Amino acid sequence: MEMASFPSLLRTLAIIILCYYLFKFFMRIFAPILMQKAVNKMQEKMQEQYKQQQEQQSRASQASTPTPKPKKEVGEYIDYEEVK
């Protein structure tokens, strides 16, 4: 089994540190753009859901308007009292 040399260890650490800082740099540039797109997409979905909900409520209110039902006349109502 071979031992890693000191220069290769330094090279590996330098690559890792470089990748870390490049990642941070690109995230500072692209993260706000990606977040804005995500927020806009969620906002569109919320507006769409709100419109659908409003349509459902308007349909429900139109369907639930009470139509006068004709009352059946069965006869007179007689109130009986209990006799003890």
Results as ranks from 00 to 15, higher is better:
L34R: 04
M35Y: 14
E76W: 10
L9H: 04
V74D: 04
A4F: 09
F26H: 03
A14Y: 05
Y21V: 13
Q53R: 04
L13M: 14
C19G: 12
P66L: 15
I17L: 14
Q57F: 08
S8Y: 04
F26T: 11
P70F: 01
R28L: 06
V74I: 08
V83Q: 09
E76V: 12
C19F: 15
F26I: 07
P68Y: 07
I15W: 09
M46E: 09
Q49N: 07
T65R: 15
Q49D: 02
Q56A: 14
E48F: 02
L10T: 02
A38M: 03
K24I: 10
Y50L: 13
Q54M: 03
R28I: 04
I78P: 02
I17H: 05
N40R: 09
L22A: 12
V83T: 12
V74W: 02
R28Q: 07
I29K: 01
Q56F: 11
F30H: 02
A60S: 07
A14H: 06
I17C: 08
A60Y: 12
L9T: 06
T67F: 10
K24G: 03
M3K: 15
K71F: 02
E48G: 02
Q47D: 01
K84R: 13
Q62N: 15
L34A: 05
F25D: 02
E82G: 02
Q36E: 05
V74E: 04
F23H: 12
A38H: 03
E73Q: 09
K24T: 07
E82R: 14
Q52E: 10
F6Y: 14
R28V: 04
S58H: 06
L22G: 15
L9Q: 11
M35K: 06
P32M: 00
Y80L: 13
Y21R: 03
Q43N: 10
F25H: 04
L13F: 12
Q56R: 14
S8R: 09
L34T: 01
K24C: 12
A38P: 00
T67D: 01
E2D: 14
N40E: 09
D79P: 00
E2Y: 15
N40K: 06
M35R: 12
Q47Y: 08
M3N: 11
L13Y: 13
K41M: 07
L22C: 14
T65L: 08
K45M: 02
M42L: 13
S5M: 01
Y21W: 15
Q57M: 12
Q43M: 03
Q43R: 05
T12W: 06
R59K: 11
E44P: 01
Y50M: 07
Q47K: 09
S58Q: 13
L9M: 11
Q62E: 13
V39C: 01
V39A: 07
G75C: 00
R28C: 07
E48P: 00
Y77A: 15
E73W: 02
Q62I: 07
V74R: 04
K37V: 03
M27S: 06
E82A: 08
E2M: 13
Q49Y: 09
K69S: 12
K69H: 05
A31W: 13
K84L: 15
P70D: 03
A31N: 07
S8F: 04
K51P: 00
K41Y: 06
